[in-house]
């Protein structure tokens, strides 16, 4: 589904991604872990198409198409979704209206008829249950005055509504208490399927107790320095990141 080769990206001439290779297939859940400043969130942003990052080398192919040629909204329409680390507030625009606009633009791109009000609301209600979204949040302005937990839950709710092929969760666990974390994880798990993939970007292994990954990659200094399975995450929890750093340094010598 997603093939990243030798991806290098920089911001204001500082190289942050330094040759990433990653392949994600349908049905898989990949966790990207790493210490602060290793480039995890940059990778997520580059995949989503944030402009301030300049891709200096490498290729990203999504479902056989060159992602680099696509605007952020095209990537979204092709089926890439990013749950933001810091969801944005849009005053005066209700979550319902926002999602209706988004969903219908995506449907139009795919040659589908827009959903009428009734089918759209039915669709919303069904997805609300997944993340235990409170109905009252839907009519409020998007993320405005939402608590940290509500915002993150709203991200997963949006993911459920828009039904992307590839979901990228950018530190969705940060700032969540354990109950909220469980709800978010539960939502993601219910959306897992054999034709969908998830990339979970996280600093802590905690979330991975609830969203069990198929693969774990450790990012350090803009490179994937170690890949493994869930056991790797557990090892990181136990030992921290220092041994990874040491191991990486020794390969450089």
């Amino acid at each position: 589904m997603l093939i990243i080769k030798n991806l290098k990206a920089s911001i204001e001439n500082n190289e942050i991604l330094n040759g990433i290779d990653l392949e994600v297939n349908a049905g898989e859940v990949h966790a990207i872990m790493g210490p602060n400043g290793s480039g995890k969130s940059t990778l997520a942003s580059v995949l989503a198409g944030r402009e301030e990052f300049e891709v200096t080398d490498g290729t990203i192919v999504f479902e056989g198409k060159d992602l680099m040629e696509m605007e952020p909204e095209e990537r979204a329409k092709e089926g890439i979704f990013m749950a933001f680390q810091y969801p944005v507030e849009i005053p005066g625009v209700s979550t319902t209206n926002f999602l209706k606009t988004a969903l219908n633009q995506i449907r139009e791109y795919r040659g589908l008829q827009p959903l009428d009000a009734v089918s759209f609301l039915t669709h919303l209600r069904e997805k609300m249950k997944l993340v235990e979204m409170d109905q009252s949040l839907l009519s409020r302005a998007l993320n405005e005055g939402f608590s940290g937990g509500e915002k993150k839950r709203n991200e997963i709710f949006q993911m459920a509504v828009l039904e992307p092929k590839l979901s990228i969760l950018d530190e969705t666990d940060s700032g969540l208490d354990i109950d909220a974390l469980k709800i978010v994880a539960n939502g993601v798990n219910q959306l897992r399927s054999k034709d969908k993939a998830v990339i979970v970007v996280t600093h802590y292994q905690r979330l991975l107790n609830f969203i069990i990954p198929d693969f774990v990659h450790v990012l350090y200094q803009g490179k994937i320095v170690k890949s493994g399975t869930r056991e790797l995450a557990l090892e990181l929890e136990e030992k921290g990141y220092d041994w990874i750093k040491e191991e990486y340094k020794s390969t450089l010598v």
Binding site: E73, I90, A102
Partner: peptide, 28 residues
Amino acid sequence: GEDQLFYCNQRGIDTETAVALIVNGYAK
């Protein structure tokens, strides 16, 4: 906000529609 526009874009909303959405929210 660039951030607001990008957020909309990431959900599949093109920039023109995003501007309309944000402005209408502002003037609601």
